[in-house]
Design a protein around this nucleic acid. Structure first.
Lengths: 340, 340
DNA sequence: TCCAGTTTTGCATTCGAAGTCAAATTTGGC
DNA sequence: GCCAAATTTGACTTCGAATGCAAAACTGGA
């Protein structure tokens, strides 16, 4: 008796404990917590009462073992500090929760940590994964080999077809560039992201191509998506262009903000009168009174919704073929650039 | 044959598969993946080779069931979008990873969701939890009942003793207030956080008491920790004080930033010449050139380190008594306030 | 009241790894 | 080369819930 009590107290009650208490078999208890199961109403009452009394919650670990469904999804994110991702992460987590799925979070300090992380992903037999980090083709192949569905967020499978949701960098940048060109700007600069960023490269390529198409040249400097690199990049571009720079295209909002501050404070320029700055993402600070960055807002709600839907679909039907969903961003006019 | 192959391919290989391949027993395989175990070097080689060939990773779910250790820790955060938490979350996740612990993330849209979340926490038999959300005493008691150690982040157990790490709001606010008073400010205003925020109330109380102690009165307006509410609160305080306000104490940096922008843009004031603004947290944007908020920076690294250490300690030795660790924040002078 | 048909129930097995214990093997001393 | 001691190994059970199957308990119609 004492023993069984201390058992109860120390760790959660089991279905056997509930069964004993309710005077039924363990199977009955199990059925009681499964929706389609056949349990007589009276029995169900008894069992639920016993369960309540013992504070019973089905052990998800044991369930996972027998059903081969952990109800866990891995979310792998490389740079949580990027201002854009917290919002995405919160949305994803809440949407998955609503589907009865739990989130195993992996936050990478360095991209090279991916392999260690994957070990753990395999060990926990996650039902699927949403990935906002760079994966090699072999790493993607490993998911396929194991039958673990993946949805990539804001990147596509390089070399391998993988389900993905993205915000359309190309049309977004085209809109920005066209606006800037029509706004009669003369000297263009681009602040790229780090070389290993998929969206960074995509945005920069799109902007550069469009500028070229419209007969404009531009200087490109690399940043790493953070505030300080916006400042640094602006300084570099001012030097390169002999202070003639009057249109700056940044691969994300954070660098745009850094550049705006730098332009105003370090160079005494007016934005957008002396210098137009555009960004990408539509993060919170972009809409702050001080900045009102002209940017492309990613439709985070629709994108996360799609990512979760695609993943859930693939967990149910693993044979579904890869699909890429591309969402158009919304041009936020802001007031950091003179668009036509 | 075909069947066993498709098994292997479809889902991860098991220790039995590895055992068969290596011509040993399942126990041997198990021992091979446990450090202190006795396995002959030659056997270990064989087994590891087989494991590699079959791409074997021990099933953490099965391990969790038998060892009664899931190696999972729940992190429960209410408002991830608060700019301060992403950094904390990333740090916690990485530190826990380094300890071989996986993170089950629960992000609450509304505080009232806590109960649903706790269900899931019990089901997954987490080894512990780090909580940055408001829990009722009964909810905290539930953790104790189940023997699940908890560490509260930036809050203390209300009514119940619980392990916690906090940044010292009181001495932080005292330092700010003293600085402001010595800086010869006349009309003080406070922007509080939402009423249900523990740290918000603590900071405001501390500031108010100190002002009182120094013989200054102040007006208090409530915000909800976001940018917009800094703006709204400033407007309200300017109205209340008939535009005489010259020192504004905000319960966090985000509201301070909102207030600074509003002061400059909506009221044409110079910060800090016409109005001093102080915040709390030391989030990224606080140090941006445009703001340089005078604030208290929370020692996030030390705090997360402590939280993880305390939790791990308690997982190992559940009988450890609750301990509160209070970390002093660092006064960032910034340039948004005229301190003495 | 009896029986066929339906619903409920319990038994026994399963998932995959860990750990106990006794059997098998190796080691070393002489 | 033999025996005791030390090491290594495998058979078997365990963790907690799910489920196929057969037994038991109902249902209602005649």
């Amino acid at each position: 008796m004492t023993k069984s009590v201390s058992q109860k107290v120390r760790k959660g009650a089991t279905s056997y404990d509930v069964a004993r208490q309710a005077g039924v078999s363990q199977s009955a208890v199990s059925r009681c917590f499964k929706k389609g199961a056949s349990v007589a109403p009276r029995t169900r009452e008894k069992i639920l009462a016993a369960a309540r009394e013992l504070n019973y919650y089905p052990n998800a670990i044991a369930q996972g073992l027998i059903t081969r469904r952990s109800n866990l999804v891995a979310i792998i994110i490389s740079n949580l500090t990027n201002l854009y991702y917290p919002e995405v992460l919160a949305e994803l987590t809440q949407r998955l929760s609503a589907q009865g799925i739990r989130v195993l979070l992996f936050s990478l300090a360095a991209e090279s940590d991916v392999d260690e992380v994957l070990d753990q992903v395999w060990r926990y037999r996650v039902d699927g994964a949403i990935v906002a980090a760079r994966l090699h083709p072999e790493q993607l192949a490993a998911f396929a080999d194991r039958g673990v569905p993946v949805v990539l967020y804001n990147r596509i499978g390089e070399g391998v077809p993988v389900a993905s949701v993205c915000c359309d960098s190309i049309s977004g940048e085209h809109a920005l560039v066209e606006g800037l060109v029509e706004g009669e700007h003369q000297v263009f600069g681009i602040v790229a992201g780090p070389a290993d960023s998929y969206v960074g490269e995509e945005r920069v390529d799109a902007a550069r191509r469009k500028l070229q198409e419209l007969g404009r040249s531009c200087a490109v400097v690399r940043g790493n998506f953070d505030y300080a690199s916006g400042d640094a990049a602006l300084k570099e571009l001012m030097r390169i262009t002999d202070r003639k720079l009057d249109a700056l295209i940044c691969a994300n909002d954070l660098m745009a903000i850094g550049a705006i501050d730098s332009a105003r404070i370090n160079f005494g320029l007016e934005v957008p009168q002396d210098l137009s700055v555009v960004g990408f993402d539509g993060v919170g600070p972009a809409t702050w009174l001080a900045y009102q960055v002209t940017t492309i807002r990613q439709p985070v709600r629709r994108m996360t919704e799609a990512a979760v839907a695609m993943l859930v679909e693939r967990i149910e039907k693993p044979e579904l073929s890869p699909e890429q969903r591309l969402f158009a961003g919304e041009l936020l006019p802001g007031s950091s650039a003179r668009l036509a």
